[in-house]
């Protein structure tokens, strides 16, 4: 198996964190999990860059997406630095690498559009809301600085997908929009399962250490999907409301 070992890089950052003994363990688990998830998403952006190249995207855009992979690795190090500051080790089982779907049933433009919808318009837009709320609840200090840095990059990652959709409206004919709608139902189901699995209600809560209230985070997740993502996708001509309603059957 692979072990993700960010100890050396993480210790070089050393943010000053004062841990409450009552919630320290929960904070350790949370930040170690974030370290794994963030670092583990770098291959997603590298594969997205390759798919964008295959779809004929401009070189500057492809390079920007490759840089996003670097940002995700840097986020892993930042989260690892919090683990170390809490007295833990920035060491954990790495996520198993999975290939990005190629969506061979459609052309390369539509294939990469599906993946941009899932990664940027769904996952990263939800991340902007979750991290943004956590940052606002956290007192000023080194930990909030970490969140500010990560949030700033996540905004760019989310915008990649929204910008792609806006720029390619003329290529989204009716059959493509219908097919993307069917894909959205699958992507919404996947997103919901992923978020609910990771946002657990009932555990310790400590906004000072980034240990969020799982129930509140779940509520924010649903609000983001239902009041931000779905209406915007609908406005861009994709049948998102229908897809969200049909996600359970997808």
């Amino acid at each position: 198996m692979k072990i993700l070992d960010l100890r050396v890089a993480a210790r070089a950052i050393a943010p000053e964190v004062v841990a409450d003994p009552a919630t320290r363990e929960a904070a350790l688990h949370t930040w170690r999990g974030r370290m794994v998830n963030e670092h583990g998403s770098a291959p997603v952006f590298l594969a997205l860059a390759d798919q964008l190249a295959d779809a004929g995207a401009p070189a500057a855009q492809i390079e920007a997406v490759r840089a996003m992979a670097d940002e995700e690795r840097a986020h892993g190090v930042l989260c690892g630095s919090v683990v170390e500051a809490l007295g833990g080790e920035a060491l954990a089982p790495a996520l198993p690498e999975e290939p990005l779907p190629v969506h061979a049933d459609v052309d390369r433009f539509e294939a990469v559009t599906r993946n941009l919808l899932s990664v940027c318009c769904l996952s990263e837009t939800v991340a902007v809301a979750l991290i943004g709320a956590e940052r606002l609840e956290m007192p000023a200090g080194p930990l909030q600085d970490v969140l500010t840095r990560i949030l700033a990059d996540e905004v760019g990652h989310a915008r990649l997908g929204w910008k792609w959709l806006a720029e390619h409206q003329d290529r989204l004919d009716a059959p493509r929009r219908a097919r993307l709608g069917r894909y959205l139902a699958v992507a919404f189901a996947h997103l919901e399962a992923h978020e609910l699995a990771q946002l657990k209600p009932g555990g310790p809560v400590d906004p000072r250490l980034g240990v969020c209230d799982g129930a509140a985070a779940r509520a924010l997740f649903y609000a983001t999907v239902e009041t931000v993502i779905v209406p915007r996708l609908d406005a861009l001509g994709l049948p998102a409301r229908q897809a969200w309603a049909e996600r359970a059957a997808a």
Partner: peptide, 22 residues
């Protein structure tokens, strides 16, 4: 490595997108 699957609030980092099964 003392991993805790029940730890919450970790939903960061986009997962690999799903495939559309026929």
């Amino acid at each position: 490595v003392n991993w805790d699957f029940d730890a919450g609030c970790m939903a960061w980092g986009p997962p690999v997108p799903p495939a559309l099964l026929a």
